[in-house]
Amino acid sequence: MSFPHPDEVTARLAEFGPPRQIGRSRLGEPITMVSIGNGPRSALVFAGPHPNEPIGFLTVPRLAESVTRDDLGFTWHLIGCVDPDGARLNEGWYAGPLSRERYFRGFYRPPFDEQVEWTFPDGMPETRALRAVIDEVRPDLMCSLHNGEVGGVFYYVSADRPGLADALADLPTGIPLHVGDAELPGTQRIRPGVFLFPGHEFVPGMSSVHYASQYGTFSLVVEVPLWSDPRSSDTTSSGLPRADVFAEVADMIDDVRKLPELPAVPDSPLSRSFLEVQPAAERFANAMRAHQAEGEATVAERFGLRQIAHMIRLRACATALRIVDGEHRQAFSELFDKWFAEEDSVAEPIPISKLVDTQVGAILSAAKS
C-alpha cells in the first residue's frame, strides 16, 4: 500500500460530501474540509500537520466511511491534508516500497517555525486556516494524526478521561505499545503509552491543542510507528545506568556537528530545514546531559533514545543530499552511508492497514468516552 498525494486525499474525501475550501497554502494549494453527520457535538480531525507523517492521509477517508454509517452523536469535520506544500516535498517516497533508506532519501520536514501544528495562532496561512476552523466549529473533540518511525504506538490526551487511557492502550492493534518516556518535555504518563499533553510553558511554540483548549476541547494526538523492532517493547534491564544511556545518546547527537558546512545554496524549504538541524541537535544533546536520570535503563528505553539519535543524524544528511551536488554531495553521502549502517534496527514495516485501524480505533474510542 502506498500513501496518497494531497489531491488524491481530497478526491477520496469528496466521495463523502462536498469539500469546502478553508484556506490556501503558502504556494496557493487549496486546503479543504468535508463535514459529515448531524450530531449536536462537533469533532475536528486533521491529517498531515507534519508532512513526513502520512498515515493520516489514509485514516481520514477510512474514518469518513465509519462516521457516515454512525456519527456517534457528532458532526465530523475532516481535513485530509493540512500542509499540502510539505506533502509535495515528500511525494518521492509515498509511492513505496516502504523502506528506511527510501524514506530518508525522500524525506522533508519543515523547520519548527514552519510547522502547522506548532505555529498557533498567527503563523503560516495553513495555521491560520486551521485556527479559523477551530474558532468556527469549537470542537468538543479534536484529533491530530501523526506517526513516528521505529518504535511503538502512543497517545497524547489533553485530559485524563475516566477509562480512556486504558481503552487506548488496550486497543487490539497488533502494534507494540510504546513503553518508554514521551518525546515532548513536560508530559505526565497516565499509563504506559498514554501521556498528558504538556502545557504551553514546556514547549517552544503554541500547538493546536493549546489553542483549542479555550473552547473546552478534548484533544487526542495519535502517534503510530511505521516500523517495529522487538526491542521497542522490551522492559527488561539493559544493564546500563539511565544516566550513561542519556550521555551515550547525547554523544551520538553531537555527531551532527561533524556535518560538512553547507555551500551557498538558494533559500528553499529544504535549506531552511537543514539550517535548523545543528542548533536543534545541540539543544537536544544538552537536554540529554542535563536529564536527572536514575536507575537502570530498560532495553526499550535505550533502544528508543538511540533511535532518536539515529533519526536526527540521518534526517540531517538526507536533507543535505537533496540540496547539494558535486564534492559536497560526496561528503554528505559518505556520512549518510556510515550512519545508516550504524542504525542496527530490524525495522520491519508494520502493515499500513494496522496503522490506519489503530488511528481510527483511537479516534472512535475518544468519541465514545
Rank of each mutant, 00 (worst) to 15 (best):
P198H: 09
E223H: 06
D70Q: 10
E342Q: 15
P125D: 07
A165V: 06
G151A: 07
A159R: 15
A167C: 10
I312Y: 03
G151P: 02
R102E: 08
F74P: 12
D122F: 13
G152E: 00
F16V: 04
L72K: 12
V45C: 09
P225K: 14
L355P: 03
K338C: 04
Q278E: 12
F154S: 08
F74L: 01
H310C: 07
A167W: 03
S42V: 00
T217E: 08
P125A: 07
Y215R: 03
E183Q: 04
E8F: 04
L130C: 08
Y156F: 14
Q278T: 15
P84R: 14
W339E: 08
L275G: 03
M311S: 13
F112M: 07
V324C: 06
F107C: 09
L184E: 11
A14K: 11
S237W: 11
G151N: 05
P111W: 12
L196F: 05
S238D: 10
H5M: 07
I350Y: 03
M288Y: 13
R302L: 04
A167P: 05
V179I: 15
D251R: 11
V116P: 09
P349Y: 12
R62S: 11
F107Q: 05
L63K: 04
C143L: 04
V67Q: 09
L168V: 11
D181A: 14
E136D: 15
L177H: 00
M1I: 06
D251S: 15
A366C: 06
A285C: 09
D344Y: 06
P6H: 15
V346W: 06
V265D: 12
F218I: 00
E15H: 09
E294M: 08
A165T: 10
V324T: 10
R109T: 03
V265W: 07
P61C: 11
H210C: 03
F218M: 02
R289Y: 12
R88K: 12
L335E: 04
L177Q: 05
A287M: 13
R128M: 06
Q115C: 04
K258T: 12
Y155P: 01
S35Y: 04
F340P: 02
A366F: 01
D166Y: 02
C143H: 01
G123H: 00
P125Q: 05
Y156V: 01
S207K: 07
P225N: 14
L130E: 04
G37Q: 02
A159W: 00
R138G: 13
L259C: 08
A64V: 13
E117V: 06
F195I: 03
F274I: 03
E149R: 10
N52A: 14
D267W: 11
A64S: 09
H328D: 15
D325S: 15
R322V: 02
S158V: 00
P176H: 06
H77D: 05
G86N: 08
P172F: 01
I312L: 13
E183V: 12
T119H: 01
T236W: 02
C317G: 04
R242A: 15
F154M: 05
R24W: 08
G199N: 09
